[in-house]
């Protein structure tokens, strides 16, 4: 059985029910990407997987046990999360911020072990921010800041990492930089689950794609197996053509040019 599994989830905020009877298995060792239109419940599902949202019904299981019943720090040693809008404390340095990723391993009299030191150095090295260690995070560019936050999650040394829209607010070059980095982390043996807005990015990087609409999973599987013009039309309501990406061979979504049809219709 896979390590992270959700069964029969009913997810709701206050009165608004986002999803009912939702079941998901995150394949171990996959780079799973969840896509879908705004409001389809993809971020909500990720929050439930990260045990930030308590399901109204059903449960998320980590290693076969309900995740909410397990001690918080023990879960935090196995599942890490990069939130959509993390808050960077004023004036904090890169090294200090990354070091906070070690919290799940620390106790009153175990405040900073050699293990912590090694993990933080390795995490900063992995995302290439070692030279920025003493810089103040507020003063970095958006792309650098996102890499620093990734380093914090890496320092947590979890086999499973959840990423909530890690590329929002980044320009295209930094989006690719962050996703390449995620891809490398996946190849090193971690299980990644990301919510992404850009379907083409999802197809390019995902090994397992989950397409959601209206709180339900419409399709899941390898992008090249499931992404078709019909699926995109059904999930996003967007007529399109699917071609092979000349660079990676993965499906590439090219939206149909509806302007011609519109002009023709008006004539």
């Amino acid at each position: 059985m896979n390590r992270l599994v959700a069964r029969d989830l009913t997810l709701a905020y206050e009165q608004r029910v986002v999803a009912e009877g939702l079941g998901v298995e995150v394949p171990d060792g996959s780079f799973t990407v969840i896509v879908g239109p705004n409001g389809c419940g993809k971020s909500t599902l990720l929050r439930a997987l990260a045990r930030l949202l308590k399901p109204r019904e059903g449960a998320v299981f980590l290693d076969g046990e309900p995740i909410l019943g397990q001690p918080a720090k023990q879960v935090a040693r196995r599942v890490g999360l990069l939130p959509q809008q993390p808050v960077t404390p004023d004036g904090i340095t890169v090294a200090d911020l990354v070091a906070r990723g070690r919290y799940p391993y620390q106790r009153l009299l175990r405040q900073w072990s050699r293990e912590d030191e090694r993990a933080v150095a390795a995490a900063m090295e992995a995302v290439g921010v070692t030279e920025l260690a003493d810089r103040v995070v507020d003063e970095l560019s958006g792309g650098q800041r996102q890499r620093v936050w990734l380093a914090l999650v890496l320092a947590q040394e979890t086999p499973i990492m959840l990423l909530d829209e890690p590329t929002t607010f980044l320009d295209i070059a930094h989006q690719i930089e962050v996703l390449d980095l995620c891809s490398r982390l996946h190849e090193e043996g971690r299980t990644l689950v990301a919510v992404l807005h850009d379907l083409n990015h999802a197809c390019r990087y995902a090994t397992h794609l989950i397409a959601m609409r209206g709180g339900e999973i419409v399709a899941q599987g390898r992008p090249s197996d499931i992404v078709t013009a019909e699926l995109v039309e059904r999930v996003f309501g967007l007529p399109c053509r699917i071609i092979d990406c000349p660079e990676t061979g993965t499906p590439l979504v090219v939206p149909a040019d509806r302007r011609k049809a519109l002009t023709a219709g008006m004539l």
């Binding site: 930030l52 023990q74 935090a76 040693r77 599942v79 890490g80 993390p86 906070r100 990723g101 620390q106």
Partner: peptide
């Protein structure tokens, strides 16, 4: 003082703090 460390972690935002194991 015993809760000081959790207070520090809370400054990362509720989501990040919770994901790091802070109740």
């Amino acid at each position: 003082l015993a809760y000081g460390r959790r207070l520090t972690m809370g400054e990362l935002g509720d989501d990040a703090a919770q994901a790091l194991g802070v109740p």
